[in-house]
Design a protein around this nucleic acid. Structure first.
Lengths: 201, 201
DNA sequence: GGGATAAGAATGAACGATCATTCTTGTGTG
DNA sequence: CACACAAGAATGATCGTTCATTCTTATCCC
């Protein structure tokens, strides 16, 4: 059935990339359900039927977009973990979400993913997997010994603090949508105070 | 045009209520776009055409559901404001979201609303209006004099703390979706610590 | 009070549009 | 010629919405 030859040729990869790029733009603009295959095809400048050569169906495209977004999120957190200025990185999170850049981490897409996760078990599993990975990563970091660059927190304490941190970041996505024009300096001071508390021994 | 007689008869009100109740259930289950009018009609046990006697179109139903959800949220916050145990009330927020009760404040619906607000200006305006009202309410509370039951905080300080509080609550909606089985006691301790800091002089 | 009449309430079929998906056909290349 | 690639037409289903029609209820005149 899926004996498609040269399935992983360089051309096939490029085509898939074209489709995913267009899909991401459409999903941000209209949402997963309201964005149609015709819409995506037009954005990708190809026929609608052709997309089925590279993806089994629409939900496969949705899954791919979500997986890619989660991967980018994890990369962002990993960078954040090795940084020296956690507050600045959190502000950067907010900044990217506020910017509504269709290319990178996007608040609209993030909200859509989470909303869809309440209905689709497959999407929920993907989000949960990513969430768990991030959490374990951060907890390990906070509970690592001081000499190894960590804070030496007991695991239980680290876990609750990471929960607050994660909840705060998620909430920032929503706040970025409704209050995109919030005062930057006040926000900075607020986040710095929060971070200071989360990283205190 | 809209010379519909007895538009606000007791019967009409009851019918609208039936429709909204069914719509809420369908929207939670499938989302705003994936839930069809036929689906809602079936849930409300009436014909599809009849709904157009009480609502102009589908988006009017969506708007009504959102408006009602926002109203309930404001009522919840107002209750929270007069309470003595803020931490317990925040936990109650999380608990309701976790419960997935189709009748009351619902995390899935809340996420869907915010996601849709990134595309629909009318929905965005409604959410922002409600958000602003809640914020002003809370800021007024925190900055009120001590003798009047407030904390006597300077308005700027109150504003940033309320921002954190609101962001935290929104984040809890997402956390409730992905981590519904989080340890209750740890969560309680965490939230209590956060609240203590937010309410400190 | 009881049958004629009008209005309100509700139905379910029908509409055109659009959906995701598949099929047919054409085109260029090795 | 053969074969991967692509376009675009066809498909059946479903979408939101409308409409002609029927059922139900109230009003009026005698």
């Amino acid at each position: 059935m899926n004996a498609c030859p040269a399935k992983d040729s360089p051309r096939a990869g490029a085509q898939r990339e074209r489709i995913l790029c267009a899909a991401q733009k459409c999903f941000i603009e209209h949402g997963f359900h309201a964005a149609s295959m015709a819409n995506i095809a037009e954005t990708a400048q190809m026929s609608a039927g052709l997309m089925y050569r590279y993806f089994a169906n629409k939900s496969a495209i949705v899954l791919a977009i979500i997986e890619r977004q989660l991967q980018e999120g994890r990369a962002h957190v990993a960078r954040l973990r090795t940084s020296s200025d956690l507050a600045a990185d959190l502000l950067d999170f907010f900044e990217r979400w506020r910017a509504r850049d269709p290319g990178s981490m996007n608040a609209a897409l993030f909200l859509e993913m989470n909303a869809e996760a309440t209905r689709d078990p497959q999407i929920a599993a993907a989000l949960r997997r990513s969430d768990d990975a991030i959490r374990e990563d951060l907890v390990a970091w906070l509970s690592r010994d001081r000499e190894a660059g960590g804070l030496g927190l007991p695991p239980a304490t680290a876990a609750t603090r990471v929960f607050v941190l994660q909840t705060l970041v998620k909430g920032l996505a929503m706040s970025a949508v409704l209050q995109p024009d919030i005062d930057q300096d006040a926000l900075r001071a607020t986040i710095e105070a929060q971070v200071e508390r989360l990283l205190a021994p």
